[in-house]
Amino acid sequence: MKWDPKQYAQFSDHRDRPFHDLTARITAGDPQLVVDLGCGSGPQTHSLAKRWPAARVIGLDSSAEMIEQARAKQQAPNLSFEMADATIWMPDPDTDVLVSNAMMQWIPGHRVLMQGWLNALAPGAWFAAQVPGNFGSPSHALMRELADSKRWAPQLSGVLRHRDVVAEPAEYLRLLLAAGYETEVWETTYGQVLLGPEPVLKWVRGTALRPVLDTLDTDEAAVFESQYAELVAHAYPAFEDSSGRTMTLFPFRRIFMVGRTL
Rank of each mutant, 00 (worst) to 15 (best):
T215A: 08
I26H: 00
I255H: 02
A54W: 08
K6T: 06
E184N: 07
M1T: 09
Q44S: 08
P5F: 11
G38P: 03
L22R: 00
P132E: 12
I67P: 05
G133F: 05
A170K: 00
V204D: 06
D241V: 01
V131M: 11
P237D: 02
Q227K: 09
N101F: 13
R253S: 06
R253T: 10
D30H: 09
E82P: 02
L160S: 02
H110W: 15
G116A: 09
R205F: 12
A221H: 05
F224K: 04
L216Q: 01
A55F: 08
L195V: 14
A76W: 03
L142C: 09
R205S: 15
V57Q: 01
V99Y: 00
Y172D: 08
A54F: 14
S100M: 09
L113G: 10
N78V: 11
P154K: 03
S243C: 07
G158P: 14
D219C: 10
K2F: 14
A64M: 15
A28V: 09
R71C: 10
L209H: 02
Q155F: 14
G136T: 02
A64I: 15
T188C: 05
A55D: 01
D148N: 07
E225P: 04
W126P: 04
S47H: 09
L231G: 06
K6M: 00
D61I: 08
W203M: 13
H162L: 13
I107K: 07
G109L: 15
D217P: 11
Q69V: 14
K2D: 13
A9P: 01
P211T: 08
K202V: 05
P211F: 12
